[in-house]
Design a protein around this nucleic acid. Structure first.
Length: 430
RNA sequence: GUGGGUAUAGCGUAGCUGGUUAACGCGUCAGUUUGUGGCACUGAAGACCGUCGGUUCGAAUCCGACUAUCCACCCCA
């Protein structure tokens, strides 16, 4: 019988890598906590209309990338991003009645039906935060600061923060008109996709990779010149605050987010070391979204951080988050009486907080020794009739070959713990 | 949705100007007398050479289709 393979664009996290994931997740939550963000957990699937209303009817994500499933008589959609569901939960549970601003974070999987490539999966994971209630640019700076601290403390290098303001619906509408007016005379020379973009999303024209489009767009009007007074002031304040925080950034007027809810501030942390999909973190302000989803008009913002992409960067840059799990003491019993004793010792060591294992395959002593070595056991101990009779056992340090006698009584686990700690300290000082 | 690349044991590869039992490294398992691992040596298991069809006396090797997968466009994390 042949095995069934995983769906295209999904990934298995194998034992060799799972620890990096859990270490990363713990780090993300605890860092977010320092900024006042508490974790929220929401369903994997939602009412389809939540996304068409929240993310935007005309976006690619909603139009062609959603996994919408028919379950009995109802249809649902696997979340393509985290914000809509989180805002839904906030509104449904009345969280906005708590002292504002509300700060929540999450780690969840998202689903988009796209063609997989490096840094892009159909099921991917993201860490995200949402902050609701503040219209001040200081809130923007804080959220960006969190992302910045995460990346910095993880040791990520060569990643740049780009910020932009895409204004409020009022100034953006004016800007779109100006852009169209600028590009229309050159329409025939634009690449095919850009001709299409001219109507759908004119701001994308500035981001085109084609030489001709770039050349044409060189002198195109910039959104920053079309911001209303309020939006312009907000952007200036953000820049000033980032400078106060010592966070480097570049203003990139070409940044466009593909989700409809963004207003004013948009930002992304981009690297070029993991292929074409280099946006590790992206986010911005969405002052209209909460009202759009039926809540009270409340300014808010957030970001999403792609965990697979982040892990790709860390791997590429040689950052290791976790050493493989080892074994502190591997017991090698010889004979039934010793085996019974070892079984009890292993359990006692584990209760003590140490990791301990023994053979469960009925292997010869030599094989057990080899196996202990492959497991990366730091210490081994052979227990046979002699040890039982003398009431002591030699614990062997696998790295040095040194052996230390320990009494086979109730003090064994505590004594071994001392040796184990001493060994750990010795390694650290070296 | 559109391009292009790739498809040989668990993993990484060789073989690809068609020619008899498809090779190598790593890994796994068993041994080198059940009282001490790493090294070395011996041996074993494990591949219908992605699938189907075509050319041919003969196909892992050439051709086609399909499927899978990777990279890129697009889009986003």
């Amino acid at each position: 019988m042949e095995i069934i393979k995983r769906p295209y664009g999904t990934e298995d996290v194998l034992p060799a890598n799972s620890k990096s994931w859990s270490v990363l997740e713990t780090f993300l939550r605890s860092t977010a906590e320092k900024y006042g963000f508490s974790e929220i957990r929401v369903p994997t699937f939602e009412e389809t209309s939540l996304f068409s209303r929240g993310v935007g009817e005309t976006t690619d994500v909603v139009q062609k990338e959603m996994y919408t499933v028919l379950a009995k008589e109802s249809t649902f959609t696997l979340r393509p991003e985290g914000t809509a569901g989180t805002i839904r939960a906030i509104l449904e549970n009345g969280l906005l009645n708590e002292p504002l601003p509300l700060r929540v974070c999450y780690i969840l999987s998202c689903f988009r039906h796209e063609r997989p490539q490096k840094g892009r999966l159909r099921e991917f994971h993201q860490f995200g935060v949402e902050m609701a209630g503040s219209a001040d640019a200081m809130a923007d700076a804080e959220v960006i600061s969190l992302a910045n601290q995460i990346l910095t403390q993880l040791g990520v290098k060569d990643i740049s923060l780009r910020i932009n303001s895409i204004g409020c619906p009022a100034c953006r509408a004016k800007y779109h008109e100006a852009l169209k007016a600028y590009f229309l005379p050159h329409k025939d020379r634009l690449c095919e996709t850009c001709q299409d973009r001219l109507e759908r999303n004119p701001m994308r024209l500035l981001d085109c990779k084609s030489e001709i489009c770039r050349e044409i767009g060189k002198d195109a009007p910039l959104i920053l010149d079309y911001l209303c007074e309020d939006c312009a002031a907000h952007f200036e304040k953000l820049k000033a605050d980032l400078t106060l925080l010592g966070i480097d950034y570049t203003v990139d007027p070409r940044i466009v987010r593909g989700l409809d809810y963004y207003t004013k501030t948009v930002f992304e942390f981009v690297t070029d070391c993991i292929g074409a999909q280099g946006t590790v973190c992206g986010g911005g302000r969405y002052d209209g979204l909460i009202e759009q989803l039926g809540g009270p008009a409340t300014p808010a913002l957030g970001f999403g951080m792609g965990l697979e992409r982040l892990l790709l960067v860390l791997e590429k840059q040689g950052v290791t988050l976790a050493e493989p799990t080892g074994v502190d003491l591997f017991l090698i019993p010889m004979g039934d009486a010793a085996s019974d004793k070892a079984l009890q010792l292993v359990a006692a060591l584990r209760r003590e907080g140490l990791s301990s294992q023994m053979d469960v395959m009925g292997r010869s002593m030599r094989k057990q020794m080899k196996y202990a070595d492959k497991l990366g056991a730091r210490f081994t101990a052979v227990i046979g009739d002699t040890e039982l009779a003398e009431g002591k056992v030699a614990v062997k340090n696998m790295a040095t070959g040194e052996k230390i006698d320990l009494p086979l009584d109730d003090s064994f686990t505590a004594r071994f713990a001392d040796i184990e700690i001493a060994d750990r300290l010795a390694k650290e000082t070296v």
